[in-house]
Amino acid sequence: MYRAVSSILQKYDADMGAAEAHGIAAGMLCVEHKVDAAGWLHELFTDQNDLFDEDQTVLRELFEGSRNLLDPDNGEFSFDLLLPDEDEPLADRVEALRVWCQGFLFGVGYAHTDADWPGDSAEVMRDLIELTKIDSDAEGEEDEAALVEIHEYVRAAVLTVRDQFAEYKNTTMH
């Protein structure tokens, strides 16, 4: 899926790669689970009407698949970040994780303009901001192990943000 999304984004000269695009989608969905894919596509492309139907379908499937995996009622911990495969160079995977976090922060900010952050989400967001500063010049087993740990932390952080916003919405609506 990563390669397919990357090639679509490249084909239409999007300003970002697959990891960052998916981060934006995840951020938007964590804050507002009912957000429309059209808003996301608008952030990716100045004119989404130029997209071929099959390309738009792939992107919408990624967005809707992410929505399903981030559904608070799903209960499963099956959501994952869209990153390059393990056979890609470590530096490329670290860079993809860095820009994924950048995209996630943008997506959350896109959907949540209020200065108040529910629960632990403010702390999580500060951690993710720090991760946007990581050096992608990585090599060796230690850096590989660190990437795996950071990846797992970010997955958990995403679900924390999702849960905090879901809880926040439930308490403010009743």
Rank of each mutant, 00 (worst) to 15 (best):
R3M: 04
L29N: 02
Q56W: 05
P118R: 04
E32I: 08
E149R: 13
M125K: 09
V161A: 13
E76V: 03
P89I: 00
D114S: 13
L159G: 15
D13N: 15
K11H: 08
L51F: 00
Y2W: 11
A111Q: 15
D73R: 09
D92V: 03
L51H: 01
E123V: 10
E139N: 06
L83K: 07
L128Q: 12
D92L: 08
L90W: 04
W117M: 15
Q164L: 00
S66C: 14
N170I: 08
F52Q: 12
D85C: 00
N49G: 13
W40V: 03
G109Q: 06
N74Q: 14
E43A: 14
A26S: 15
A18G: 06
V5G: 11
E152L: 14
D120A: 13
S66Y: 00
S121I: 00
G140V: 01
I8A: 13
E167W: 04
T160C: 10
Y153V: 14
Y12Q: 09
D143T: 04
C30G: 05
T57P: 00
C101W: 09
T132G: 03
L29S: 07
D116S: 09
A25Q: 05
F79K: 12
D71L: 02
M16S: 03
K11D: 10
M1A: 14
H42F: 06
V35T: 15
M173C: 00
R162V: 03
V5H: 07
L41Y: 07
Q56S: 10
L131F: 15
E123T: 10
K133N: 07
G39C: 00
D13I: 10
W117T: 09
D163M: 03
D137N: 12
S7Q: 02
A18K: 05
R98A: 15
T113Q: 15
T160H: 10
G27A: 09
R162H: 04
S6D: 13
E32D: 10
T46K: 15
H42N: 12
D163E: 05
A166W: 11
D71T: 00
L62G: 01
D120P: 09
A122T: 01
Q56M: 13
E142P: 04
L97P: 08
D85I: 03
F77Q: 15
E61V: 01
L83I: 04
H33V: 02
R98T: 12
F45C: 05
P118I: 04
R98C: 13
H174S: 14
I150M: 15
F106L: 09
M173V: 08
G109A: 03
R162G: 02
V35E: 15
D85F: 01
D73P: 00
E142M: 05
L70A: 07
Y110I: 06
E76D: 03
D92A: 11
A115S: 14
D92F: 05
E43Y: 11
E86S: 07
K11V: 01
D87V: 10
L29F: 04
V108K: 12
L62T: 06
S7L: 00
S6E: 15
S121K: 03
S121T: 04
L131Y: 14
K169Q: 13
F106E: 06
D137P: 01
V148R: 13
T160Y: 06
A166C: 07
L83C: 02
T132D: 03
N74L: 14
C30W: 06
A91Q: 11
G109N: 08
E167V: 00
Y153D: 14
